[in-house]
Design a protein around this nucleic acid. Structure first.
Lengths: 225, 225
DNA sequence: GCCGACCTCCTCCGCTGGGCGGAGGCCGCG
DNA sequence: CGCGGCCTCCGCCCAGCGGAGGAGGTCGGC
């Protein structure tokens, strides 16, 4: 089944260009175009596309607002790929916060546009390399992981780190044992050596340590059903 | 011309699986496999692949070190896609700093693996959605608080939230009691009602909940001496 | 005044968790 | 080949945790 795409851009020429490019790929079908944010919302509801190519700068309603509204109301799986001319953007963060799955510049080669659409449709997240680099550097300079904490982290063996991650999910020893296909007694002995190596007292402190050392980060866990 | 791929993983079964998957795509050619970091370096030099699928955890030399050595010495255009089981993102930064073009989890559907390889070969950067989400939540200073989680949070009373914070420091009931100038029995009853209200099982899950709901944020705790 | 929400504290009891002290197997290193 | 590190398990012991089921206190609202 082909990938159904909605192209949104206020400049008809650009819009048409993207559509032309995508039409050369038989697995991609442009089902509609829109020239404003409001039109985009309406077209999305009507055509229920798999992927939306969304410009940011538009009259009436910009791409960011349109994105969050569409994603907020959609009752079908739709993904948004933001296309923008420049990249000097606080826009990036807003766009990703709005729920966009990708963010690429309009100067990408035509064939990569198709690749990008496929990646997004496949459930991937795609960010232009230049932007990715910036995200990474911004992220890296982040709260400078407590060096002393990180140091103690690599005194653990690989297996022990597995256990730490599992403990930091709130699992019991027997649950961890089943997940790792080992006996409960083994889990207990791993936990014990973790506690002594890290100078901790019990498993709740292991959880704290896992988060504080960035071994585990918020936003990755399901807690309580 | 087909995309030439080197598959690196210390588990022969996993390695073979990836190779099998990729072989079903005519535009992708697996030119070699390696089971350790050292083998990977040698195989890369010999076969000069376009893309390297690299596991992190390996004997002899891990995927991160192998990646940076290969990229440091390569005199041809090669890109590295990191494949890992868990996503303890210590690794993410190191990997991206080492020059990897992508970072995905091994649980991606088979067809996405091929898409990922094509994306990387095309010069794109690819990061697993789960990790991208985390990157994003770092910039959106309100770490995309899971609405359902936050909702359950304010079903707690003020005092109960105090207890949650204290539990999330890794303190025992008696320690919490002393800090709050109440009896240990009182702490226990608070903890009990917290558990039932939040649908959790034990205090380690409370710690997880505290971090996931942003009631407690990393970088604010002293852990271990 | 009564009711409900909240905080405080209590007992009894089963279970998990963690310390201690082992043991065997594998593997890499000197 | 022996040594040490790692992973895998075992049994014993008991402190802390958590469930069940209370009780008394204050305070605000109906």
């Amino acid at each position: 089944m082909s990938i159904r795409v909605l192209v949104v851009d206020d400049q008809a020429l650009v819009r048409g260009g993207f559509t032309m490019i995508l039409r050369t790929h038989p697995d991609i079908e442009v089902v509609a175009e829109a020239g404003t944010g409001l039109e985009a919302i309406e077209a999305a509801q009507r055509h229920r596309p798999d992927v939306i190519l969304m410009d940011i700068r538009m009259p009436e309603l910009d791409g960011l607002e349109a994105t969050s509204r569409i994603l907020g109301e959609a009752d079908w799986p739709v993904r948004v790929l933001i296309l923008t001319t420049f990249d000097p953007d606080e826009y990036v963060y807003q766009a990703l916060r709005a729920g966009a799955s990708g963010f690429v510049l309009k100067d990408i080669p035509p064939h990569e546009l198709a690749t990008a659409v496929r990646t997004i449709a496949d459930g991937g997240a795609l960010i232009a390399p230049s932007i990715t680099r910036r995200l990474i550097s911004r992220f890296a300079e982040g709260p400078a992981v407590n060096a002393a904490v990180a140091e103690r982290l690599h005194r653990l063996t690989d297996r022990e780190r597995d256990i730490v991650v599992a403990v930091a999910r709130g699992d019991t020893n027997t649950e961890i044992a089943q997940q790792l296909y080992i006996g409960p007694a083994t889990v207990k002995s791993h936990v014990s050596s973790i506690l002594t190596k890290l100078g901790l007292r019990d498993r709740t402190q292991i959880v704290v340590f896992a988060y504080e050392s960035s071994l585990v980060k918020p936003g990755t866990q399901d807690i309580g059903t």
